[in-house]
Simulated assay, not measured.
Amino acid sequence: MTPHGPTSNSFISQRLRLHYVDWGNPSAPPLILQHGGRDHCRSWDWVAEELARDWHVIAPDLRGHGDSAWVPDGNYEMNAFVYDFAQLVHTLGHDQVTIVAHSLGGNIATRFTGLYPEKVRKLVNIEGLGPSPEVRARREAEGYANRFRKWIEERRASSGRIMRRYPTIEAAYARMKEENTFLTDEQARHLTVHGASRNEDGTWSWKFDPYLNNWPFEDTPEERLNELWAAIACPVLFLYGADSWASNPESDGRAMVFQDHRVIEFENAGHWLHHDQFDRFMREVRGFLQEAR
């Protein structure tokens, strides 16, 4: 990691002050690194340091994540996340950007790309298409009213839930290691230091809003998502970990909606494959980004 690291900045979206870091090199083409759910922008530091040599790298914190503001009513809907992403691009003033995005961030960035295909040069999507067709079908089979009631009950339970507190930063670090066994000690410590903050009583908690544990029960219908995905004009690289819970879009058919795409699966990697197989990840991403359209 470079000694100075990135600079912190903020922008306003729907009255929320949202945080992002800027890795410098402003004369280079813009590249946005978007993290996933319950993560933070500094999880990209190793990737950003490599790419900042050739790109002007911007890494934002989603609303309710990292050092961005929490939503007052705790309601985190996809449309709001997409609006924030569009507002970031608008605020930065770029005509076109390149995007590398993970999980929830990939879902957001892919919808943005479908809405504004002329604004995205290339997109790297790391396990970021949302639930597989199988999971969607299983949820639909539960019935709309049942899903609605379940969401209300879980939201009511969340309202009284306090943030999980760890007695020491070392205890939070141990939890990070437990969550992703592929992480090295250095990676886990870095992610913990930037992903946790100290409470008034001296304990530590993760920075993300606990309401993010209660995801909205309803999302954009599948046919509408397909419309957005089919509208994407730029090349798309899908990356998936062979040991991840996420469904490979080449296997489940979702990738076929995209005009120009390829899918690469990483062995010995889980959901955070950009941590688990960093060297291979950087080779694949650099090769893809450097290819002529």
Rank of each mutant, 00 (worst) to 15 (best):
M1P: 14
T2K: 11
G5N: 02
G5Q: 01
N9A: 04
N9I: 00
F11R: 06
S13Y: 06
Q14L: 05
R17H: 14
Y20M: 01
N25E: 02
R38N: 14
C41Y: 06
A52H: 13
R53Y: 13
D54Q: 10
I58M: 00
A59I: 03
G66R: 08
N75I: 12
M78P: 01
M78W: 04
F85R: 08
L92P: 05
V97C: 04
I99M: 11
A101L: 03
S103A: 13
R111S: 15
R111C: 13
R121E: 15
G130C: 09
E134R: 09
E134N: 06
A141Q: 14
R147Y: 08
E154I: 10
R161N: 14
R165K: 15
T184M: 01
D185S: 06
D185A: 08
Q187I: 13
H190T: 02
H194G: 04
G202W: 09
G202K: 08
T203L: 06
T203Q: 07
T203K: 06
W206S: 10
N213I: 01
D219P: 10
D219V: 14
T220H: 06
E222C: 10
L225V: 10
L228S: 13
A230L: 00
V236L: 03
F238S: 01
L239K: 00
Y240R: 04
A246Q: 14
S247Q: 09
E250V: 01
G253Q: 02
G253R: 02
G253Y: 12
M256I: 12
A269D: 06
A269F: 05
G270W: 06
W272A: 12
F281N: 13
E284T: 10
A292T: 10
A292E: 09
R293L: 07
